[in-house]
Design a protein around this nucleic acid. Sequence first.
DNA 1: ATATATTGTAAGAAACATGTAACAAAGATT
DNA 2: AATCTTTGTTACATGTTTCTTACAATATAT
Lengths: 237, 237
Amino acid sequence: MGIANILSVDDDENLQFVIKEYLEDEGHTVFTAANRNELLDILEKETIDIVLQDLVIPNDDGLSMISAIREKSEAFIFIVSGKDDPLDKIIGLEVGADDYITKPFEMRELNARIKATMRRFKQQKETAAAETEDEGPSKITLPHWVLDRSRFQLFDTAGKSMNLTTGEFQLLEALALAPNRVLSREHLFSITRDGKFDVYDRAIDIQIGRIRKKMNDDPNDPQHIKTVRGVGYMLVV
Amino acid sequence: MGIANILSVDDDENLQFVIKEYLEDEGHTVFTAANRNELLDILEKETIDIVLQDLVIPNDDGLSMISAIREKSEAFIFIVSGKDDPLDKIIGLEVGADDYITKPFEMRELNARIKATMRRFKQQKETAAAETEDEGPSKITLPHWVLDRSRFQLFDTAGKSMNLTTGEFQLLEALALAPNRVLSREHLFSITRDGKFDVYDRAIDIQIGRIRKKMNDDPNDPQHIKTVRGVGYMLVV
DNA sequence: ATATATTGTAAGAAACATGTAACAAAGATT
DNA sequence: AATCTTTGTTACATGTTTCTTACAATATAT
């Protein structure tokens, strides 16, 4: 990622040439349009990410062209204006443009803004994706505890952190998702780590011990994590 | 504020009665539904803030009901599960629920959770309001910092610039957009730069180090950017 | 009661992840 | 082209986490 389909709408052929050269050097694909017909034509045929729209187009109106773009496309629209007119800016943003840049501009400046825009787009997409692929509840509430899965931490009901390590947290999480059910060492092992489980492996036991210590759970009379001899462990609630 | 419209979905009439009594004593308005039809009916007619959804409903499926709620409402969803619920249901919790609570639960506990949720809601609404009447999402305000997204710079509450580089700012921005959430190095990498992430890549660590230095955040006892071993980094607010 | 199996845990070793200095590379600015 | 800024790489020190081993404690079966 990092490259975009860009459409520049301007009647100034020299400027169009400069913009095209520069942005293509940056790796983008650049289309140009000098009037409304060309604009609509390209929007139809290509998937445009960013439109650079000049406000002053002979025999037409840049602002109304922006509305036309908005109807057809989700593209990010930069207004390119010959004068720094706050009213144009306000109206432009009103009809659906996203940013405003004043002529004459440094190509470097334009490029920087395009980059920032692309990144913002990308970020939005990724955050949205991360949220939907989110695995279920972000918190698990038990009578005396709260497991916060976005913080990877266990808290008591007063909100105090129990300072579990990530590995401890994951083991407890597995138990908490199936409270009052005995889970075998093998099952717990397969959830929390890779590799093959060996019957004499005590790693789970040790880890349970550490969790108990942090939860203040006496192993001889556990209130939270119970041992079921010959089977495994169970979180009771 | 502090009261909410709560909808409890459960087929156990006794439990429904207890919940309703208790929460109404607390000042909330409580609706009850015993099946999908009642649920949809109430969602249609009322603006529900919080739904308590039993995982097991006779002749229906609590999980799919949650998806249905999500389609119609922005409500915060608590999954309520009994200890005898089938394991596959629990493992399959990949829908958009927000909290998970196991029966039997103390009403006091449930009430505390609801209060915490309301507080968060309220806060969210207020920040959203502040943003629109201010200057859009161009600034991210945290307890000790302000991130100005149009200037790509971090300021303290006194307005002093922290002189972050653009790259440093972008990384911090990504963390700030998901406060109190651990983000993996891979995720941070994919947001802030192009190309493929390699597991042994330390670029993110280094940059975090530089940001911490500029924020004056002691890595051994960080107040702002916390390291979660084996997972990633988290901005705490 | 005795033998056997299972679990708890201390202590040390090993594995692992992180912070960071110092240098190199890349990029921007002049 | 020369300089400055920013970012990435390598290498190493440090501290944390996890595992192994060994043995004691406990439960179960005979």
